[in-house]
Design a binder for these strands. Structure first.
Lengths: 208, 208, 208, 208
DNA sequence: AATGAATGAGTATTCATTCAT
DNA sequence: CATGAATGAATACTCATTCAT
């Protein structure tokens, strides 16, 4: 039919292929993914795939970066310009972000970092620089802001932003491993934040 | 002559092979691991490996189960029979357990569950039944015990034991992905437990 | 505007493509050459290339014949109509021809005959008929002419014109294989002709 | 049957494979040869071939070197220790060597050097060092010996040993390209040597 | 029990050729 | 005419698994 071959623009091809690759890598990891399956899912021939991505490796990197890139800068931009109090920030935008992440495509990136990061160190570096370090720094700065303004007391949390995102991590891993076993991840996150804020605002320190 | 060693090895062979396989699967995941490398690392021929493990799949399962099996039952046994108060339990044995896990072999099991669980659902089931569900149930029961005894107030944490182990998860994933980037995982865990206990003991609830 | 160039090119396109193909086949041989590279070097699209040459095979043949065709007929024409003595012919035009051949495009044809002739027997036939047999016949006839006129004595050389062109062959192969290792191919040819003439003119036969 | 799989020793496998590869490379050149065909001709699976030769490239090199290596050293040894006069050497052992080469396996090496040398420069270097330079040096030294002993006069041939082997080259190329067209290559060689000796012994120099 | 040579189905990648535009 | 996106058969290479010894 006239609907086939040339109907889709070449500009869209890389996206379509990357999209299919995202699914396949997501399901099988790097080593387990087959380029054939990517091509089939994208509805293109293997030859065309290789026209846009020179190797499976390059395809993998493109796929991961495609998910990472736009996401974090936008988010950090949005979050850091907020005028809210630290508590409002934690309870509002950060909670929302952490609640949606386990359901988002970013979940797949986390899975791929865990499963294939060791053999793609440059991807890990990229992830660290553009996502992890920035995100953690943002959280630290929010906590610090709360401390400066007298909203929060001084705790080890300032230096351990990983503590803030912990429930998101559990929720994400849970979704990856136990997808079918139910867990109210939203409540997990909000309860954690509740606990955290409570901890940060408590008068008498109980840190050992 | 070498008979003693030879005799001894005969019985230890499966262990040695599984040990080597553990390393290899740990490094490359299921799909990326090569049976050749396992045999080489174990110092046996491929033929012998296949005498003990009929397929790569079976080897994989054996390896994972070998790490899972003894670990959890013993732990749960030990923990559940303790006579401590809930807080003592959380601050003592549980903290220690969570602190050492990211450094232990169990870290590898977590990595493999994340990376290859989806294609080995029976392994996930096994992991769920023998480790995850039991561990989470234990934590819930400890919290509940604290609530019953008046040590803790009633919170959502009772139903969200994942909240308790969250820092362990973050620490584990961190070690897997960012091995070389430093993080004081012990402090992460202890601070979290501190926060948790503080939350559980607070008079005025702030749960939404 | 660019019309003139465009118009001109239209007629020259096959030539330009064949020219590019000559370079590529020359460098990589038939099997190793890529049509893509030919098109790129010719500055045309692959589609256009296939408009003029239906297959890679056909392109190859066209390229080889293009070099063969005009060359030999002209040469033989020129040589055979000469009024020179046999010795003058050997020392003059033939020496010049043999000296320049290893540097000329014909060298490439020889290379291609050697490397790919076996899979293009019709090309070999064509080469034989239009170049090799004619050239050798010409040389034989010159020698014969010298014998008839009493200039030369009767030797096996008359029936072995390959003996006359031997230094050209060595020089050509040398250039192909040992391009960077120096060899005075001109002197090689002239010394050989000197030796040949001396042999043909000697009174007392020393042939065994 | 019992005659299959394990009947041939593993020590013979590389030889058998290289033998088959020799035929295939000989016929198709490097780029045109298919590893599958080599394996099929050798009567082994592709997997086994790759057990002995890591890449097609390595197989190619092994094949070429296998033909080159033993041949030349032995020959040069034999030739250089001879007690013959220079003329006897040229008319005897050298003539025989040059006569048999176009029929021997060395012919294939020459073909491969011409067709694929440019993309395997290390092979060319190896060929140069272990065959070409040694062989030419040997010939030069024989001529020189004749000159020193007063057997030959001083000519340019001393510095152009390529002149001596020229008929062998023509014969070899002829066999490669025009296999089916008859040429008395033995007579070609002997006539050339006759001419050469005659030239070297002539009183009055006719060199330009 | 133990070996490792051998297999062959599978996988990434290439490249001559086509064809919608 | 002209393009170059698209195809798919071919090709180098890998790896889980087998089996003669």
């Amino acid at each position: 039919m006239a609907e086939t071959r040339y109907q889709r623009r070449k500009e869209e091809r890389p996206d379509e292929i990357a999209e299919a690759a995202f699914d396949v890598f997501s399901e099988h990891g790097y080593a387990g993914a087959r380029v054939d399956e990517v091509a089939r899912k994208a509805g293109v021939s293997k030859g065309l795939l290789y026209l846009y991505f020179k190797t499976k490796e390059e395809l993998f990197k493109a796929v991961v970066m495609r998910v990472i890139s736009p996401r974090m800068d936008a988010l950090i931009e949005r979050l850091s310009t907020s005028e809210q109090s630290a508590e409002e920030f934690l309870r509002g935008p950060l909670t929302q972000f952490m609640q949606q992440l386990p359901r988002s495509r970013a979940r797949v990136v986390i899975k791929l970092m865990i499963s294939d990061g060791s053999r793609h160190p440059d991807l890990v570096d990229f992830y660290w620089e553009s996502v992890a370090s920035k995100g953690l720094a943002l959280i630290s700065s929010i906590i610090e802001r709360g401390v400066s303004s007298g909203e929060f007391r001084k705790t080890a949390v300032s230096e351990l932003p990983q503590l803030v995102i912990a429930p998101m991590m559990v929720a994400t891993v849970w979704k990856i491993v136990f997808a079918d076993r139910s867990l109210d991840t939203d409540r997990l996150v909000s309860t954690h934040i509740d606990m955290l804020v409570s901890y940060l605002k408590t008068e008498r320190s109980k840190t050992r």
